[in-house]
Design a protein around this nucleic acid. Structure first.
Lengths: 244, 244, 244, 244
DNA sequence: TATGAATGAGTCTTCATTCAT
DNA sequence: CATGAATGAAGACTCATTCAT
């Protein structure tokens, strides 16, 4: 069991650890989590064993890289929170997350759950991020800057999605434009659709929605609760079900 | 020197090809593109050699799987185009792409360019998809159902982003709600932000935009063309630049 | 998970499996369980992957090698049992195990429990061997050819010890001579020591023995049961105990 | 170019050397010679470099550990020699070696030649041990306490074998009983077998023996010297030879 | 000087691809 | 032809040994 090294150690060790961390960050961003550890070592200018001494598993290296990056995000978010008006802080933070995620494409892999990579990783940092997001969102919603019917989980998903947009659109400015388009949907004066009549519910479970298309369902005080917004969706959902 | 088998061959060969294709589709969806070829073969109930007879490379198998899936999408899109009103057809198609991508998570990997997987893959089918999208978008825009200042590339990026949202939000209905929120931003009555005054330009290059925040820039007929919308953004961009 | 291959497969596969098995047997005998798998593969004239196909772990290869060797031993023992007189069969079998163990030195590692190698291995075959030994021993004891106060576990330990002797004494004949000297102690007319008055108890727990020197203790029907054969041994055992 | 430190150096260096030595002894006993050097260093509470300062190779550490342990044995043997009657001294010494080898299982690896570990190691100490053994054996034999037809090499092999027995039999008392059973074969009134007529030859080459079963061969002054004790053994040996 | 960080060759294992049956 | 066995180039990880602090 290799000894994991803390911050109080020898200066050269600390320097090496930092070199490895940043090399890994770059490598992951450029080539995905599959880059060989040897490449990272070479990029950092150290031997493979050194990487290993600091991060006893490739897994733990991934963990450390993202923990650091998320840590920086959280720090910047906390700074914003104390310095800006609630709404501004919230949107600024989300934009920060999205924008910086360009240089670490794989953040999706880490934050989203379908990642093939074992991900009970990062739990602590992710939890901190989530909490910060909740606080910021809550404040922004109380200030009237964000529609009240979205919850933290929605924001996380939107963020991941926006990061993906930025990645898909190679032009940074164009990508940001799309992101703004998307995030503007969060404002209370947001866009209006056929299925727009969201109930004013705080949190991530904004009341019953059509299981097929997601439209908000009118709640009747009596009768069997509706699952779909109409016959069309009921039929579609039926077709989707596997034959018994 | 395996002979690749076309559609005109013996029927059992065609059947095998289909079996492999569907097994690979499932496997990729469930476990990502990294699933070993042997597993796919086993799942398909054929030998590894048989997979190779039909697809000379793993790469080409990936290609074929997504070509087929995109092909189905394109077909459904074409059906929509001929049957529905332009705006409805456009949004229906995009929603289709997003919604079905849940069962093949990796569509991002294939459509987005930063995928670690070599992707000059699918060129043909992707081109067809792109063209269909262009046509649908154009029609919807002409019908006034979609704001005129977005181009096909924007739509692709939005689609990829929305697929990511669906993946990140495990609740399908909640995911769809976010997607609608996002796509509503495409409607002409879309949301309005400080940086909203998009110029009415078709295509993926909607005129000069702030390189930092994406806001549209007012073009002055004389003088040096602006790169940023203001001092704030200029300063930000400056900080982003690596030290010389 | 590589597919492990049974006996009913392709002939070349079977041949390769056999080649690997015998190469591994030789290699383990010559150089211990630590020989690199690559060396075994080279010795067998196959690729590393082939070894892997047949034995998904190095562990399982070790397992298979010893299972086979023990299997052969068991078979020969069973043959002896049906063909020879009990005492002859018993000694013949034990000598067989000891003598053949020269060509597979590491049998100790597998049969003895302190082997650093994970050894819940082989349980089935070892159990069979143990049972055969029990039957043979029992028959020989009933025939009066083996003193009645030893149990199967004693025989296993003696066997392991004798194998070690053979290994330590490079001259095969001289080694066998020592082994005979040792095994002769099993005969009813065996050697006589100060502590020789073993109780006539069958099995591996032949009644109370001095915890220090192993001499058989006289059992008194009353009083506190003795742990040592005398003051000398009690004192020695005391010195051995760690200070409190 | 680490300087090896002798016994005449600073006292803390000597203390460190001792700590490493004892830590290594424990580690080898518990986990075999394969225990990583780093673990030994940690167990000793020193840095890896310190281990290296005292023992320039892992090999030399092993050497030192066993040299020390054997040294202790030799010392105790010499004490016995001067204090006890010859026979008692001999058997006491051998039992000592066997019994203490329980706490350093790997003595077999060091004393027996097939050890995968390079062993021209301990030559000096082993030679001393060997010499002591020879003296003790000789005295015991002259005193009539040990049969005259065994040599020092036989004793070494018996000792190694008995140590293996102790290891194989987890119950210490039961193990000791087996050991006594075995060592009793060394007494002049030892057991008698079909192949028992050992010639009274001192040393490790006690005259011509059957190459197959080890029985002593009658030497005829004329004719071709016999290699086997009879037709049965000749046939067995023939079957053992590899096909040409 | 002692420490423990760095090194890199060597080991096991995987898997895309080829090829004998 | 289909099958699945063989191949061998990587990749993750270990650890004896060296060397900077």
């Amino acid at each position: 069991m290799a000894t994991v090294i803390g911050a109080g150690d020898r200066s050269d060790a600390r320097r090496n650890r930092a070199k490895v961390l940043s090399a890994a960050g770059e490598a992951f961003a450029e080539r995905g989590l599959d880059v060989p550890l040897g490449d990272i070592a070479r990029r950092a200018g150290v031997g493979a064993g050194t990487v290993y001494r600091h991060f006893p598993t490739k897994h733990s290296l991934v963990e450390a890289v993202f923990a650091q990056q998320l840590g920086e995000l959280v720090a910047s978010g906390e700074r914003r929170m104390s310095r800006s008006a609630p709404t501004e802080a919230f949107f600024g933070f989300v934009l920060d997350v999205i924008d910086t995620s360009r240089s670490r494409t794989t953040i999706c892999d880490v934050m989203s759950a379908d990642a093939s990579w074992p991900r009970p990783v990062l739990t602590a940092t992710v939890a901190r991020l989530h909490q910060l997001l909740t606080v910021l969102l809550d404040a922004a919603q109380r200030a009237g800057g964000v529609r009240p019917d979205v919850g933290p989980d929605d924001i996380v998903a939107l963020t991941v999605g926006c990061a993906a947009m930025m990645t898909a659109r190679h032009d940074r400015a164009a990508g940001l434009r799309l992101v703004r388009l998307t995030l503007d949907g969060l404002r209370p004066s947001g866009p209006v659709t056929e299925a727009r009549h969201f109930r004013d519910v705080r949190g991530s479970a904004p009341g019953p929605a059509c299981e097929e298309c997601g439209a908000v369902l009118t709640v009747h005080p009596t009768g069997r609760p509706a699952r779909y917004c109409g016959t069309t969706c009921r039929q579609r959902a039926h077709r989707r079900r596997p034959a018994p």
